[in-house]
Structures are given as structure tokens and as C-alpha cells.
Simulated scan of single mutants.
Amino acid sequence: MSALETHGGEIAAAAGKASPSLMVSGLVVAGVSLQDWVLIATLLFTVLQIALLVRKFFKERAADDDAE
């Protein structure tokens, strides 16, 4: 058994914890300020919330149509 097979979950968890800070650091080095990064993250979060709400609305509407 390789180390990746035995510790794959731990490696994935560590990578998941490190990725946000690495992404912010990379964007700052690329010229995107921290203030812009916060704006991008807020916009992304808002778009995801809207998408989930629209998806929920259409699922409930389809369930209501099937019930009739």
C-alpha cells in the first residue's frame, strides 16, 4: 500500500484547508488586491445562493405539477 492510499483523506483535507489562503496569495501576487478578492468572493457567494434558490424553486414547482 502506498502512502497516498493510506493517507489520501488526510492529504485531501490538508489541501482543502490550504487552498483558500493559497488562492488569495496567488491573486495578490498577480496584482489583485485583497479588497478586490473580498469583492470577488462576495459576488461568487451571492451568485451561488441565487442559483441554489432558483433550483429549489423549480424543484418545488415540478413536485407541485406532478402532484396535480
Rank of each mutant, 00 (worst) to 15 (best):
V32M: 02
D65G: 06
V29Y: 07
A63S: 07
A62N: 15
V54E: 04
V32Y: 08
T46C: 01
A13C: 00
E68Q: 13
V29I: 12
A67K: 08
G26M: 01
R61Q: 05
A18L: 09
V47P: 01
I40L: 12
A13V: 03
Q35M: 09
V28F: 06
A12M: 06
V38C: 02
D64L: 13
F45Y: 14
L52A: 11
L27R: 12
K59G: 03
F57V: 13
M23D: 09
V38P: 02
W37N: 13
A63R: 06
A41H: 04
I50Y: 06
A63L: 06
A63F: 00
L43I: 15
L48V: 14
K17D: 03
S21A: 11
L22A: 04
S21H: 06
I50A: 01
T42H: 06
A62E: 15
S19Y: 12
V38I: 13
S19C: 10
E68K: 14
A13F: 02
I50T: 06
A30P: 03
R61S: 07
V24F: 05
L22F: 07
R61C: 03
V28I: 11
F57R: 13
T46P: 06
V29A: 08
L34I: 12
A18D: 11
I40G: 01
D66H: 08
A41E: 11
L52E: 08
I40D: 05
D65T: 14
L39W: 10
A41R: 09
T46G: 05
V38W: 11
L52S: 10
R55I: 11
D65M: 14
L27E: 09
A30T: 04
A67N: 04
E68C: 02
I50P: 03
E68L: 12
T46L: 12
S25T: 04
L39P: 08
V32A: 00
K17W: 05
L27V: 00
W37G: 03
D36I: 04
T46N: 03
G16P: 02
T46A: 13
F58G: 04
M23L: 14
I50V: 14
A62I: 10
G31A: 05
F57K: 10
A14Y: 01
D36E: 15
A30R: 02
L27S: 04
F58N: 05
G31N: 06
D65W: 15
A18G: 01
L39I: 11
W37I: 15
G16H: 00
A13Y: 01
I40E: 04
K17Q: 12
L43D: 10
A63G: 09
A14F: 08
A62T: 10
T46Q: 07
K59P: 01
L22N: 04
A18E: 09
A51C: 00
T42P: 05
D64I: 07
K17E: 13
G26Y: 00
V28Q: 05
V24L: 09
A12F: 03
K59N: 10
D66I: 02
